[in-house]
Amino acid sequence: MEHHHILRTITKLLIPIILLFALYVQFHGDFGPGGGFQAGVIFGSGIILYGIVFGLDKAMAVIPPSVLRVLAALGVLLYGGVGLTGIFLGGQFLDYSVLAAEPTKGQHLGILLIELGVGTTVAAIMILLFFAFAGFNREERG
């Protein structure tokens, strides 16, 4: 992709918008369509686009696979952790109403946190899958 100047320039312009849109979908999921899953996929596709156009090595330099593996597990841990916090604060598992003084505020906080967990795991797994497929292909050729 070294000589595709138009592609490289457009990609450079697009990637910040894609990542920003992913964050918007992530944190605006309470009010509009979207949520952690969609945001994770959009964020992942932003990084995958970078990997396709600028090469796998540069994409892996941006987010190393070792970091991604930790992030993928952290997302699920965050989700489960919010659920367990509900138990420790006197509610039931995944009962967010006890997280704040008012039940609706607690629900807001809980949903925000678990959506963040979902988004982190989904984005990390999507990028890891792409790295695995693309890297495997390169090994086979080389």
């Binding site: 999921g29 369509p33 993928a72 597990a73 989700y79 505020k105 629900q107 949903i111 979902v118 797994i125």
Partner: peptide, 27 residues
């Protein structure tokens, strides 16, 4: 729940346990 998007409130709050399972499946 107090959020305008009912889909999110069902997925994340009423059916939070299901969504936890889904995320675990993805991982």
């Amino acid at each position: 729940v107090g959020i305008p998007n009912v889909v999110t409130s069902v997925l994340a709050s009423y059916r939070g346990y299901d969504t936890l399972g889904e995320v675990t499946v993805i991982l």
